[in-house]
Design a protein around this nucleic acid. Sequence first.
DNA 1: ACAATAAGTCAGAAAAATATGACCGACAAT
DNA 2: ATTGTCGGTCATATTTTTCTGACTTATTGT
Lengths: 114, 114
Amino acid sequence: MTDNTTIINHNNCPGQEILNVLATKWVPSIFKVMHREPVRFSELLKALPGSNKQSLSVALHQMEKHGLIEKKIIKEKPLHIEYNISDTGTYLLDVFKTLSEISTINKQKEIAAI
Amino acid sequence: MTDNTTIINHNNCPGQEILNVLATKWVPSIFKVMHREPVRFSELLKALPGSNKQSLSVALHQMEKHGLIEKKIIKEKPLHIEYNISDTGTYLLDVFKTLSEISTINKQKEIAAI
DNA sequence: ACAATAAGTCAGAAAAATATGACCGACAAT
DNA sequence: ATTGTCGGTCATATTTTTCTGACTTATTGT
């Protein structure tokens, strides 16, 4: 038997890593909340019902680690922390938009096929 | 207290659905194997060590459902099934490539920061 | 007729992701 | 001094995803 298949290991593919972050449960929602203006941790928690501290904390760390958001300590009156979207993050929002379009086109095809 | 946070529910966002497919464990690898030429189920299984029938089967169905790949029954001598990437799928490979670039740039920044 | 391969399905087990609730340190207001 | 808020962490529980191994149907080779 001729084996023309190649064994491939994509475990340390850099794109995969970022994809895993993007597909983490609350990440797309966090992005969308932050889209227009920076948010604080407690605001996110309120804005995303069903979420929890733990998951948001992990998600924010991952997003920061991958350069999708930036964490800023605001040294004003009440001294607080603000998260805001980075340029990379803004670009990724465009990717989301494209994915939505693809998905929508596909659904129209399904309907047309009936 | 003035509540300036809006409660947002992104549950039925169409982009999210396709994102979930993309981030399913073996999907990116399947894409890459199929990138150049169509593959058969048993070839995928061999090409992706650590994978299993069940997961690949589910992944292929999801990918087909979302129009990322196409399934073809080849009525030649040994009569078999072939999966190949669709135009949408090819486009998504480009998205992966971009994600990889973003990730790589980010890692370089990390190194530079040391 | 018999065994082998391809392309799966199914139920249950194991592993990974997510959620819950208690707790903590810093700061502010009463 | 006590209470409350903010921005978390930690250990544990629950839920979801993924894997394993047995089984199936159709086709092909001997």
